[in-house]
Design a protein around this nucleic acid. Structure first.
Lengths: 78, 78
DNA sequence: TTCCATCTTGACATATTTGACAAGTCAAGA
DNA sequence: TCTTGACTTGTCAAATATGTCAAGATGGAA
């Protein structure tokens, strides 16, 4: 899979989970440990940046889901 | 979860899968698209670096597993 | 011991993520 | 129209991931 494709898929997955939980980006940031702001959430959700695993981990925690759930986008052959 | 703890867990998981498949780091690098070398594999496996999702994706592809499988380390509450 | 394969570690340059702030866009509603 | 909330986008500095090379450590086999 191409880099930009992966980043878009991961971003969409995060946005999907966040919206399912009825959270705004500001809400999410408020639930995340340490410093992070909506600028980064926005860039990650739109696939414009290639986040580190630790950043994704903090987002997952804020969303109350596992990292595995964020990676849950079909592609069994991956 | 702490950053260093997460990185160690992810690293161990990658090393575990790689060794289960009987691959050396050099073997793995040979199966990965684009540039990557054993230096990075070693640093990631030992948790000394915080890899981006795309780097993990390429490693997963080289190991013939999904990203989800690499994130498969207990912690349902995460 | 000497080789050899494997892995780790340090140093370095480059690229990019991250955090922070400001400004812009857009839609909904008063 | 004006305001407000939500999100996007640009810029900047600081931190760090990545790629590369070289050297060191380790263990096994000859």
């Amino acid at each position: 899979m191409e880099k930009s494709e992966l980043l878009k898929i991961v971003g969409k997955r995060i946005k999907e989970i966040r919206e399912d939980k009825g959270l705004s980006q500001v809400d999410l940031v408020g639930k995340i440990d340490g410093n992070i702001d909506t600028t980064n959430i926005s860039r990650i959700e739109s696939g414009r940046t290639n986040p580190t695993i630790f950043t994704l981990h903090r987002i997952a925690e804020g969303l109350d889901v596992s990292l595995q759930e964020i990676m849950n986008f079909g592609k069994p052959e991956n």
